[in-house]
Amino acid sequence: MHTQLDVNGRAYALDHDPRTTLLDALRDHIGLYGTKKGCDHGQCGACTVLVNGRRINSCLTLAAMHDGDEITTVEGLGEPGALAPLQQAFVDCDGYQCGYCTPGQIMSATGMLEEAKAGDPSHVSASLSGDVALDDSEIAERMSGNLCRCSAYPFIRQAIHSVEGKE
């Protein structure tokens, strides 16, 4: 079947099996290998991308469901030499060890910062409405869907803290 995807500002016309996940479409059809496959089950977050600005586990959604959608992957955020602030923060804070979870962490944090800005509450928020103060426990909770087996968590949280409120 045919699906039209807008990935990082470029249009791609895909001809694919209806069961192809968005993750496989990105990696195997389009050749963008920055989005990683950690579990293929929606449980690790390594495959996180933005769909129309919202974060999503790309292994848990079919490419066919995103005809016409705008997808942003880690490659679309910035590149070496012109890093996005969050990418730079991960470099500055050493927010990784093996780096395999990193693209997912960065995409997830990008989406998460927007959610917080929009006032979306989380499980640990004191109230369901009003401004969200992104303290450490808020960040930890909102990022708990992105596993890092190297447990670079302290530095990941530091990196997110350092850009929060700066933009």
Binding site: Y33, G34, E75, V91, D94, I106
Partner: peptide, 14 residues
Amino acid sequence: PHDSAPLHVTGRAR
């Protein structure tokens, strides 16, 4: 930082 820092954060580390 780690040797591949800019590659990791941009998804270009293979």
